[in-house]
Write a protein that binds this DNA or RNA. Sequence first.
DNA 1: ATGAAAGCGCTAACAT
DNA 2: ATGTTAGCGCTTTCAT
Lengths: 341, 341
Amino acid sequence: MAATLHDVARLAGVSIKTVSNVINDYPHVRAETRERVEHAIVELGYTPNLTARNLRSGRTGAIALAIPDLSLSYFAELAAAVIAAAEDAGAVVLVEQTDGDRDREIELLKSPRLKLTDGLIFSPLGMSQEDVAFLDVPYPLVVLGERIFDGPADHVTMRNVEAARAATEYLIAGGRRRIAVVGAHEGELVGSAALRMQGYREALDAAGIPFDPEIIGYTTLWHRSNGATTMRALLDRGAEFDAVFGFNDTLALGAMRVLQESGRRVPDDVAVIGYDDLDEAQYSIPSLTTVHPGQDWIARTAVASLLERIAGNGEASPPRLMLADYRIVERESAPPAAATR
Amino acid sequence: MAATLHDVARLAGVSIKTVSNVINDYPHVRAETRERVEHAIVELGYTPNLTARNLRSGRTGAIALAIPDLSLSYFAELAAAVIAAAEDAGAVVLVEQTDGDRDREIELLKSPRLKLTDGLIFSPLGMSQEDVAFLDVPYPLVVLGERIFDGPADHVTMRNVEAARAATEYLIAGGRRRIAVVGAHEGELVGSAALRMQGYREALDAAGIPFDPEIIGYTTLWHRSNGATTMRALLDRGAEFDAVFGFNDTLALGAMRVLQESGRRVPDDVAVIGYDDLDEAQYSIPSLTTVHPGQDWIARTAVASLLERIAGNGEASPPRLMLADYRIVERESAPPAAATR
DNA sequence: ATGAAAGCGCTAACAT
DNA sequence: ATGTTAGCGCTTTCAT
């Protein structure tokens, strides 16, 4: 079996306290003693039992990340950034998938499995504003996304309304007037879809362009296939438009594919803009103009904020809202104003 | 602070053993006692301290998954499948990213951070055959991929040679004779690239088609951009071919984009086949014909095999090699023989 | 500078 | 059917 402090102590002829001192870099250890202990550690291949250490210290050095589904590129890229940021801070990440299911999300929040971790970074999808009370949990929590606001926990998210407005204005500046939407959510109030819709309408209003419900494509999920299906439905009902705002990149890519199949040229006949700036947005044909919403910053900020709360040892301080900056990434599917047509 | 067994016992007026019995569904507890204890548990909001339980039992209920990078779609989809399979088995997954760096991979194998888990599913990329000894670790380990064979651990992987041969034969059956490769690795012996290359050559040999180094595109990484760059290099040096075998889907998609930019039609001028069957292969234009290598089966098998080893409590039994079945997924970028040209 | 010993919260062997 | 108690391996007072 694995060696313990006692084994090392016995071999080095000291007490376990001394071994512990050596391991934890306690300064007052005689050089000669330290060397003997270090020798014993190497000889026995001793490595500390983290579970025991955790029990004693009440910390595990692990944080949990709960997201809907890793096979969605957006969340995969987010998780990659969170894990990298956590590693830099010496923490390790346990990933849970909720499938965006409200019940699973709520269950997860109270799951004792979380006891394995010091805190949680939580990206809800099924829960909504009325579930805000479930976020009042007895451990450090950072919430991502826009399903829930004014909760009792720290919140890191993006400027959806502003960014969506900027995306729409970008299309308008490029001379487009009939801008279709792909990915609207029927009746939603606070989700990403609702906020991006709001930004879209603000831009139209500001430009004096009337809102036309005929060119709004609704969908439930935001996968590639939904983008394709929604665009097909728009075309089938004879909707006319010269631009498309996909509420995320995968929707935009799915929609773009259907547009091209139908014989329309992108961007000549229809300009397309997405949202998320996924890696693959660079490699589609044409490459996808999109909104870069600052995922990296979100990931780093979420980790830093969570670790701060953990280090703060449950001292209550008011929940913070942190907003990432965005920018429009100009690519081929919607060239900048000067280059249009 | 969180309630403990003692608090519950005191409130219920029983000993901690009885509380423990209730929690662990030990049968011999009087119904009335059980009820009292359950009441106390609810009242105090007691949840067991998993760290303490782990220290006692020597198990954590968590497994580690080490992959190069979650932002690579293949690994994201693999991780999604592993986490789902683990959850079904009641285990939780800690994800580590190695960046495919040999030193980090080796370091990770001996990292005490793994003590937080019961075992490891490891997908090396930087390590190679000569590092096989590092796989001899004192905890349950399952290795994925084809960097290392005949190691001391269970190994779950795919039939690379056969699948690559089948992919090449599929193109040949479609009437193609000059089949370019995108993603070969210079001088590699046992990696995925080498194995797929071997399958490619076997297919050529069987069909009596001479091997032409001129149409082999080398690269180091397998990202989208490498596919694009490699294809550009092939075109720049005037290579002529009527088909492309991308050693993975992202390479194939990157290459396909460059082909189309250069004015070549896919599949009419050049047929393209990939490998991995990523979700996005369905949504490219044209959709990508590819090899489905059985990732789901690999994930499920890896988890099951690891949990078996963990349950087996370190009893040595010979390492097993498990191979997933593959199949060709016929899509537009390389239509089946009957439909060609 | 080092040692002895308590205890983190739990499980399980043993006792009643 | 339930209680007592000894650890799991570590950190950490408190002594010396």
